[in-house]
């Protein structure tokens, strides 16, 4: 059973307030997240792209700027500070406290704290509703799971305190009917297996609304003649056979992908290896269907 009523990416996305994206490292998760944001903003939606990586990331603000996407890079220590200043009315006078390396070490090490403050910031933006859609580029699947898990488990871990009370709001946002979780993967065995495991874990956590499963970098559906003429050059025959092999293997993997409770969409492997061009090609492809 798929969670979505609509098979159309655009139709469904236009209704959403929050779209979370995750996937195994190196599958093009960020590119798909950016393309999602671009597609929505081209359809007159006011979009904010949120990216979070638990480590430093090589993000490219210039590319996003040139695509006209509003973008926030969330970082745990900064979110923590913002939260403390605002929620606790902690005075600006004590700014120095936040520069304290002990406090920074604490944020880093306290279980689930980074995830929760980041999720809290996403909730804050969601709650204020200054945009139509939040597109959240989550870290790779393992970390994404702890992103969802932390606020959910935190009510138990922090028996009292503000964080405990806030966690409930965040969990509500995760399973809000206007929130969707998309997964990016490749038409290959291992990434698919990992996506399946992620889905299983996530469904164990709560009633998430699973959306689209993007099969990125698919071999384009260019038909190979049924019989490859033996008169062709050896290298051309090799090329055609390889292309056919890839198509057949991916078709098998597609069958597996379709068993998951998400709507499967293919994104072809475009020949461009440049960032901006790739994002634009993916966005154009998303809108097409």
């Amino acid at each position: 059973m798929k969670h979505l009523n609509s098979q159309s990416f655009l139709e469904d996305s236009l209704k959403r307030k929050v779209i979370f994206l995750t996937g195994k490292g190196g599958v093009g998760k960020t590119a798909v997240a950016w393309a999602t944001a671009l597609t929505l903003s081209r359809n007159k939606r006011k979009v904010r792209l949120i990216s979070w990586s638990p480590f430093e990331s090589f993000s490219e603000p210039t590319t996003l700027k040139s695509l006209g996407i509003t973008w926030h890079q969330l970082e745990a220590a900064a979110c923590f500070k913002e939260y403390a200043l605002k929620t606790l009315k902690f005075e600006k006078f004590f700014d120095a406290v936040f520069e304290n390396r002990v406090l920074k070490a604490f944020i880093e090490v306290a279980p689930g704290l980074s995830e929760t403050v980041i999720a809290g910031k996403v909730w804050d933006l969601f709650d204020r509703g200054e945009q139509d859609t939040l597109v959240v580029d989550l870290p790779a699947t393992g970390h994404a799971l702890s992103f969802f898990k932390s606020p959910m488990g935190i009510e138990k871990m922090f028996a009292t305190g503000f964080v405990h009370r806030q966690a409930g709001n965040i969990c509500d946002m995760f399973v809000d009917p206007y929130t969707r979780v998309d997964i990016v993967t490749l038409p290959e065995e291992m990434p698919l297996v990992e996506s399946g495991q992620f889905v299983e874990h996530l469904m164990g956590l709560g009633k998430f609304h699973l959306g689209f499963l993007w099969l990125n970098q698919c071999t384009p559906d260019l038909k190979v003649p049924d019989k490859i003429p033996s008169t062709l050059d050896k290298s051309i025959r090799e090329c055609l056979e390889d292309h056919r092999f890839r198509l057949e293997r991916e078709a098998k993997n597609l069958v597996e992908a379709k068993k998951m409770p998400l709507v499967v969409k293919k994104i072809p492997k475009f020949s461009s290896e440049a960032v901006k061009e790739t994002i634009e090609q993916i966005a154009a492809h998303m809108e097409e269907k």
Binding site: F90, F106, F158, T160, H164
Partner: peptide, 9 residues
């Protein structure tokens, strides 16, 4: 601050 946020336990 930390105590307020996370509770004393």
């Amino acid at each position: 601050l930390l105590e307020k946020l996370f509770g004393s336990d």
